[in-house]
């Protein structure tokens, strides 16, 4: 997440545009990155997402989603695109920022040996982009053995330690709940900073990968509420210290994977808070008509009662 002090200076009169949120997806080969990206594209729900991959080949995008294919760009139904960047990610991002209209979201699918934290850092220096979080996939069946491998062990460990959210993939291939829990507690020990979400066939809600848009007039109903996540919305939150609230949401045991909110402090200033995993930020923002906070977490994990104590009663709750 960009820890920016004030508006960045943009050359060429781009200052009025909002930063494009960028999600970095990491994880070793075979962890399920491509599957998750395809699921995301199928549930883009009007968001224009630009996917950046190292290279095409091995079908980065399911064939039925492809509308047109060029040398380094694939057009995807619903206004999304996929671009290959080879070895020059920064140049590819600069090119994306010049598109009219620019994409709503950028998702970088890092290579299997890349350090997602390093990729995330490179976003922080590009005007017009803001990191929305680092999501690292871990193949539940193989990740522990991979972490012991002479060649790639330290790479796996460093990738996990870069994550805001770890997607524990392919849980359906594990024999029982106990096995799944054992992997999760191992992952949590390896990456105490990360929130862990289990998944089957990459079915992670788009909001978890891309980030939340914030409180909206209508609760967003999910077309298929089978992934086991819940979102809670809160309104009319009394004036507070926004940074303290963001810190609590990110670091206390509320089961919050991501949160976003528009708040006011005691002086009446407007703030935007965002959290992902255990990372949080609070920035001064424009006054919003829809003050409030949205939290998303695993169903059963999200502590509605405790959040009620912190934020007042939830105005809406939806399964996604």
């Amino acid at each position: 997440m960009g820890h920016r002090a004030g508006r960045p200076y943009f050359p060429g009169g781009r200052a009025l545009k909002a930063d494009i949120p960028v999600a970095v997806i990491g994880g070793y080969l075979g962890a399920g990155k491509t599957t998750m990206v395809n699921h995301l594209l199928r549930h883009a729900a009007g968001r224009r997402i630009a996917i950046l991959v190292n290279e095409f080949g091995d079908l980065p995008i399911d064939e039925d989603l492809i509308e047109a294919e060029g040398e380094d760009m694939i057009a995807i139904s619903g206004g999304c695109i996929c671009c290959s960047f080879g070895s020059d990610l920064t140049a590819a991002l600069i090119k994306l920022s010049e598109l009219t209209p620019p994409p709503d979201h950028v998702v970088i699918e890092a290579s299997g040996v890349a350090m997602p934290g390093t990729v995330a850092l490179s976003i922080s220096i590009l005007p017009g982009f803001a990191l929305s979080g680092v999501v690292v996939l871990a193949d539940g069946e193989r990740v522990q053995a991979q972490a012991e491998d002479d060649y790639i062990g330290d790479t796996i460990v460093r990738q996990l330690s870069d994550a805001d959210v770890i997607v524990h993939s392919k849980t359906d291939l594990q024999p029982n709940e106990r096995a799944i829990e054992a992997v999760e507690s191992w992952l949590q020990a390896m990456a105490p900073q990360a929130k862990i979400v289990p998944t089957v066939r990459g079915r992670v809600p788009p909001d978890i990968i891309l980030g939340l848009t914030g409180p909206t007039a209508k609760p967003q109903a999910s077309p298929h509420a089978d992934a086991g996540y819940e979102s809670l919305a809160f309104r009319e939150i009394p004036p507070c210290v926004p940074e303290d609230l963001a810190r609590k949401l990110a670091t206390s045991s509320y089961g919050v994977i991501r949160a976003k909110g528009f708040l006011r402090d005691a002086e009446g200033n407007s703030w935007v808070i965002q959290t992902v995993g255990r990372r949080f930020e609070a920035q001064r923002g424009q006054k919003s008509e829809l003050d409030g906070v949205v939290c998303i977490g695993r169903r059963g994990d999200l502590q509605a009662a405790a959040l009620h104590g912190l934020l007042g009663p939830a105005v809406s709750s939806s399964h996604i």
Binding site: R4, D88, L89, S122, S124, I125
Partner: peptide, 29 residues
């Protein structure tokens, strides 16, 4: 500008970049 938070962009006492850019992703822009 101030506010850079990147090991490839060393900052001076004034909080502004020193002009040294380390790593391809910092040099490319």
């Amino acid at each position: 500008k101030t506010g850079h938070n990147h090991p490839g962009i060393p900052l001076g006492a004034d909080g502004l970049p020193t002009g040294e850019l380390k790593g391809p992703e910092v040099m490319t822009p």
